[in-house]
Structures are given as structure tokens and as C-alpha cells.
Amino acid sequence: MARKPGSAPQAMRNRAAKTAAAMSTTTATAPQPAKKRTSPGQFLKEVRAEARKITWTTRRETWITSVMVAIMVVLASAYFFGVDLVISWAVSLFLKLANAG
């Protein structure tokens, strides 16, 4: 079985060293650059550009996902109903034994 690229121990050490170096620099003490203010028109242009990147699911994908959620809800409710029955039976048995003694 072939290894994934970058999974060699040396590559992992290099990545860990880079991460440690990046995290060791304190940004709280460094002076923060002043934030550039954008105009409302520029903001709206950027919002529209980001909105164009949205990919909506198809009607078929939405239907399949909804059916899967419904199936999981039914399975989870059946499981918890069964667990509730077992626990209630055990508690009632325990209480009967406590009252009888």
C-alpha cells in the first residue's frame, strides 16, 4: 500500500516546525495595521461576487437528503423507544423488589 505524499516522518516534523514557528509569533504585541474602510458600493460588489460562488443543491439531492434524514429520525426514535422500555422495565422491577422486602 502506497503512502500518502507528505506522510513521511521528516515531512511531518517539517510541518510541525512551521506550525510552531507560526504560532510562536505573537500578534497581540505587534502593532495592528489600520483597517481599510470600504464604501457601501464596494461592499455590495463584494457581496454579489461572493454570492455568485454559492452552489445550490439540486432538487434531487435535496429530496434524497430529506429522505435520509427522515429514515434516521425513525431509526433513532425506535432505538430510544426500545432503550426507554428496557430502562422503565428495569426500574419498575427494582421498585417491586424494594417494596417487597
Rank of each mutant, 00 (worst) to 15 (best):
I64R: 11
W63T: 03
A100N: 09
E46D: 14
F80R: 04
K45D: 13
T65K: 14
P33W: 11
A98L: 14
F43E: 10
V91N: 00
A16L: 13
T62G: 11
T27G: 04
L97C: 04
A21H: 06
R48A: 15
A78V: 06
K53W: 00
F43P: 00
G82F: 05
S24F: 03
A76D: 01
P5K: 14
S92R: 12
V83F: 03
K96N: 09
V74P: 01
T55V: 13
A100Y: 07
A20H: 07
T26L: 09
I71S: 02
S92F: 05
M68S: 06
L95A: 02
E50V: 01
A28C: 04
M72T: 05
G6M: 07
K4V: 11
Q42I: 10
T27C: 02
L75M: 10
W56L: 15
A8T: 14
T57F: 04
A34C: 01
P9F: 10
T29N: 09
F81L: 14
K53D: 03
G6A: 08
E50L: 06
S66Y: 02
G82R: 02
M23R: 15
T29K: 07
T19D: 13
A70T: 02
M72R: 07
M12R: 15
W89F: 11
L75R: 02
P40D: 13
